[in-house]
Amino acid sequence: MTAVTPVTLRRQVELTIDGQAVTAGEGATILEACRAAGIEVPTLCYLETLAPVNVCRVCVVEVEGSRALVPSCSRPVAAAMVVHTASERVRTSRRMVLELLASSVDLSTAGRDVHRWIEEHGARPERHGPAAPPAERDHAHAGHHEPPEAGLAATVAQAVKRDNDQYVRDYAKCILCYKCVEACGEEAQNTFAIAVAGRGFDARISTELDVALPDSACVYCGNCIGVCPTGALMFVSEHDLRARGEWDESRQEVTRTVCPYCGVGCNLDLHVQDNRIVKVTSPLDHDVTSGNLCVKGRFGFEFAQGGS
């Protein structure tokens, strides 16, 4: 939104998506081309402000001539490309990705779209068996695991981590989309308090050796929470309101204003319920913050509602 933005001229590329002739700028991704053409492609690990990591694979599409399906979020369009977003292969893989996630992760606070996609694709997580009980997952040694208990489906269920006044980490809800790691790391905050540790089904978001957040490099900018798609990371304010059954988005209003602290001019979106700020986010589409804030902007609003 910078007022004076040098315009980069891009060549146009013509391709076919689901039988429809589509034109897209060179360098655009298939996903962008699909969205421009009004074709819905589900995404989980994709976010406009982050470089695509293409790990969830729910956005895969079929590109003629390509052996495997390709992630639409990261593959650039090419001239004369022929793309299918709803072929049997695509639908099978999408259904299975959703099914695998739903069978292993608590998606109860994931967005509505996720549940719609699960239904639309006919994913049946229950066919993987009853869920295994919660387990300790933070010290799994790479290359070794307990064999699955016969008949039970392993999940990422585990105890909620609450080790500070502002964040709740409920990794039973984590789909390992890497967004929090990217936001904490190179894509925004560059604090690198968390990363993906371990591997395979034991891969997990972790600080170094799973030390508590207050012992980690975390600076509580909340940018990880800002990008979490499933509610695995949540502000204490939201978490506690939900726990009390008082969280009600239909009663919330979102107002955009400017942070009352330093002179950078970060835009805040204040989520207000019953004249109280219950959450602070920042617009993804504003150049100053690209959705990111610091600890003061994110949490420093209590003074305005009797916190001082």
Binding site: N164, D165, K296, F299, G300, F303, G307
Partner: peptide, 18 residues
Amino acid sequence: RLDSFNTGVQSGGYASPL
């Protein structure tokens, strides 16, 4: 410091883990 501001009139009001 990162989590505080001036004389703390504003920033003193929230529970900063830092």
